[in-house]
């Protein structure tokens, strides 16, 4: 999982001050994370922080398009939203967001997502797992049976330990299945530096082999 040891800077964009303060409180319990910017507007300069936590609905407007712009400039974005419709989650990831965290999923998932994103590593929340396993879009990547099962059961139980016991494998293996599934999603759709970084890190970590990600190359052409 997220094994970063260096400090991580975070920017928070949300149109509700109470949410910003709530996120700050959550993140303050994690010494590696420091919040360097908070605001209500999405027009932040790319590179403002290692990770940008972005509320998808700012003043009644969906800002998925802004993720595309920010990700194209290499800014790592975590989509943070109370809206959990399949389309919104998939479009956020497609736009190049490193992760999607539903607002009701709580502190641990957000912190894990931030630390993972800072290292270009994938982190899939249970909500995002449900979205990916229920995806029947034309461009969805081919997932293995174990990857599908891990995603489905992670979505159902919200406990990797429970999934591991039911699958008869270690928690680490469950996590590998889930992360591999997520990395496959970085290969489909439009390319973005954030997706390329995630793939590069996945190869470096031995999560996937370069042979397995030919899909990314063909999509780039």
């Amino acid at each position: 999982m997220a094994s970063t040891t260096r400090s991580v800077t975070v920017a928070i964009v949300d149109d509700h001050p109470v949410v910003i303060e709530g996120i700050q409180t959550w993140l303050s319990e994690e010494p590696r994370i420091s919040v360097v910017h908070t605001g209500e507007a999405v027009d932040v300069a790319p590179g403002i922080a290692d990770v940008l936590i972005l509320d998808l609905n700012l003043h009644g407007r969906l800002v998925i398009g802004s993720i595309t712009t920010l990700a194209a400039a290499g800014q790592r974005v975590i989509a943070f939203s109370q809206f959990t419709e399949q389309r919104i989650v998939l479009e956020s990831l497609e736009a190049g967001a490193c992760g999607f965290v539903a607002k009701n999923e709580g502190r641990a998932h957000l912190v894990n997502a931030v630390l993972a994103a800072a290292d270009d590593r994938p982190y899939v929340t249970p909500t995002a797992a449900g979205v990916l396993v229920g995806d029947r879009g034309a461009s969805k990547p081919q997932l293995s049976t174990q990857e599908r099962t891990a995603l489905l059961w992670w979505f159902q139980s919200m406990s990797k330990a429970s999934v591991a016991r039911r699958m008869g494998v270690s928690v680490h293996t469950v996590d590998v299945y889930i992360r591999r599934a997520r990395v496959k999603y970085a290969q489909v759709g439009r390319t973005a530096p954030t997706k390329a970084d995630m793939l590069a890190r996945a190869i470096e970590d031995g999560l996937v082999t370069p042979d397995e990600i030919t899909g990314y190359e063909s999509a780039a052409r």
Partner: peptide, 17 residues
């Protein structure tokens, strides 16, 4: 209680935890 429903072209899976 957590109820989930996942529908794919292959199956419909309902779960409760």
């Amino acid at each position: 209680a957590r109820l989930t429903v996942v529908a794919t072209p292959q199956d419909v899976v309902v779960s409760a935890v």
